[in-house]
Every structure is written in C-alpha cells, then in structure tokens.
C-alpha cells in the first residue's frame, strides 16, 4: 500500500509541476468545476493531493460529490445547466447517460491530449467517454480454508462451497451483472448467452449475495464467504495487513470494471472539464492513484513500482485477459434480466 511519505512526495512533485503551468486553460481563473468521485481511500488521496494541485494549477475550485448514486441526480438536473461538469462512474452508467443524451460520446486528443497515450481498452468501442483506470473482476478466496486457488470461473460452482460462495444482487451491482455475462461465456456460447447464464446461476445456489463490493470484502475478511466474485483492488488493498485472502484471475479472462470520466454536453466549463480529464490521465497522477487504491492505470507511460506492476494489468499479456462487456446491449434488456434473476435467486 502506498505510504504517507510517498504520497506527500508525489503530491509535492505534482505541485512543482503545477508551478510550471500548463497551456490548456490558463484563463479558467476562479471557476468552479463540479465533479463526481468516490470516497474511501480514493477520496482521501483526491482530497489530500490530487484536487488541491489541480485547483492551484488551473486557478479553480473543485466541488466533489461523493454521495452515490450520481446518475439520478444528473437526470434530475437541466441538460443546459447540469449538476456535474465531470461525470465519474463505472461504464454501465455512462452508457445509460449517453442513451439519455446526458454525456458526450468520445474525446479527441485535441480536447484531452493524454488520450493519445492510453491503452486501447480505455477508449474502445465498449467505452463512452474515457476510462482512466480499470479493475479486474475475478474471484477472491480465503487462503486459510484449504481451498485450491480457483483457476476457472467454474470453480465457484464447487459443491464444497455451497453456502460459502459469494456474489451480488445482480439488479443493483455491475459486478453481479458482469458475473452473469461471464457465466454465459463460460457455460454457453458467449457473454450474451443469457439462457446458459441463467441455468448456471441456478447451479450456484445457495449463494450469499450482497449489493456492494465493500460488503463482499467484509464477508471475505470475516470468513462468512470462502470464495466470491470481487475486483482485484478489493483484495489487494489488504496486502500487508496479514489477512488470509487472495485474488485469482480465472483462465477464461477477467471482466473489466472501468473508472470512466465524461463531460455532460451542457457543462458551462467544458474546457476546464477537459483539462481535468487530461490531468487525471497524467502519468504522475495515474501512478499516485493506481498505487494508492490498486487500480490498473489507463496511461501506457505509467511506471508502477514492482509490487504493483506484478499484480495490476500493465503488461500486454495481462491486458489481453481483460474482457469488456457490452453495456449498451445489457442496459437495453436490464429490466427483463432483473426480473429473471430475482426469480431464480429467490429462496
């Protein structure tokens, strides 16, 4: 885990870079940039280092909303005066926002120059806006239960794990939705083979389901669950804390849980919003956050310390294991899927 000293050191270097100045938006002055962002360790680093440096460099104030869910609030605000100037969510919500015309589609290097240096997954056709980080959704497991480290998604169906396997309430959690699509791939013809996925889901009962990843972390740490679906950062963040948990990347691939930034078209400070996205893609900012919360950075130029580089998706062979779901396809049939899985998992 990143130390306070290294965080301060990186913060100082970011601040030094800020004094050099950037050409993109020197006229921003005292504008306010309204953003969404996460809490927890991510929020701590943002508040302590990332946002103050950005404010100083661009002579603006950043107003950060950490109270999830963000999408209903954006929906409720006027399109020509949106509640947020930068919309940070996971990929599934960005696609819903795009459908309603609440965010932009893509960015060019003219708007966000650092887009030129990102991994292809960051701006693929499965992404709206630009993904600045990704996590790998795989299997977390207890190392003190005599379990063989899982190699396949099918290992979660091991009868020995009955009642001790964990998943998510699929209607409300995108990791659960990714898991469902992965079941279609592993047991059927592909990510969109819902019939195979439903059948496989039935076989996972009894399974303990939670509605957010923090709860899954707690269940793994307490031993309530021996093996469960989780993102790599949800396990790696406990490294060095002597916790009997580890993360496994199944051979069929890991699902992507991207951190995506976007700009509502009606933003009054669009240039500043682009500058913020560009700033978040800078190698030094990416390194600070990636090592702080164990997220795989989007910028290819980022050089992580060895222990992070060994586990995160930085090298081409590891990036190749990342599977990005088609959220446009999923969102279009979400209501039907929600009803079906609710009935399957009830009881």
């Amino acid at each position: 885990m990143i130390s306070r000293r290294s965080m301060l050191r990186t913060g100082a270097s970011l601040a030094a870079a800020a004094t050099v100045g950037t050409p993109a938006i020197s006229h921003a002055q005292t504008k306010t940039l309204k953003i969404t962002t996460w809490g927890g360790k991510w929020g701590d680093i943002m508040k302590a280092t990332v946002l103050p440096v950005f404010e100083k460099e661009f002579k603006c104030t950043v107003s950060a909303d950490q109270a999830f869910p963000f999408m209903p609030k954006l929906q409720a605000s006027a399109k020509n005066d949106p509640l947020y100037d930068v919309f940070h969510t996971n990929s599934n919500e960005q696609w819903s926002a795009l459908t309603e015309g609440l965010v932009m589609d893509k960015f060019t290097t003219k708007e966000v120059p650092n887009v030129a240096d990102v991994h292809p997954w960051s701006v693929s056709d499965k992404i709206v806006g630009v993904a600045i980080f990704t996590s790998a959704i795989g299997l977390g497991y207890r190392t003190d239960k005599g379990l063989t480290p899982p190699k396949s998604w099918k290992d979660l169906a091991d009868p020995k794990l009955a009642g001790a396997r964990g998943g998510y309430l699929i209607p409300v959690n995108s990791l659960g939705q990714c898991h469902l699509m992965m079941l279609g791939k592993v047991y059927g013809k592909g990510l969109q083979d819902l019939d195979a996925a439903y059948k496989a889901l039935e076989q996972l009962k009894p399974i303990k389901l939670v509605d957010f990843t923090g709860q899954m972390e707690k269940m793994l740490l307490s031993g309530e669950v021996s093996e469960g679906v989780i993102h790599d950062s949800g396990v790696y963040r406990y490294e060095g804390q002597n916790q009997p948990v580890d993360f496994a990347s199944p051979s069929e691939g890991v699902m992507a849980l991207e951190q995506v930034l976007n700009v509502p078209p009606g933003s009054k400070v669009k240039e500043l919003a682009y500058a913020y996205i560009d700033y978040m893609l800078r190698p030094d900012v990416q390194k600070l956050l990636a090592e702080g919360v164990w997220y795989s950075p989007a910028n290819k130029k980022v050089k992580l310390d060895a222990k992070y580089d060994a586990k995160l998706l930085t090298r081409p062979e590891k990036v190749a294991t990342l599977i990005q779901p088609d959220w446009k396809w999923y969102n279009a049939r979400k209501d039907d899927i929600d009803a079906r899985v609710t009935k399957i998992l009830k009881g």
């Binding site: 999408m71 209903p72 929906q75 819903s96 209607p171 409300v172 929600d338």
Partner: peptide
Amino acid sequence: IAQQVGTSFNP
C-alpha cells in the same frame, strides 16, 4: 423503487 431510481434510472 430504489433499484428503479438508482440502477435502472427509471424515475
């Protein structure tokens, strides 16, 4: 209701 507002975005 929370599902419809928070994850299906159908107020």
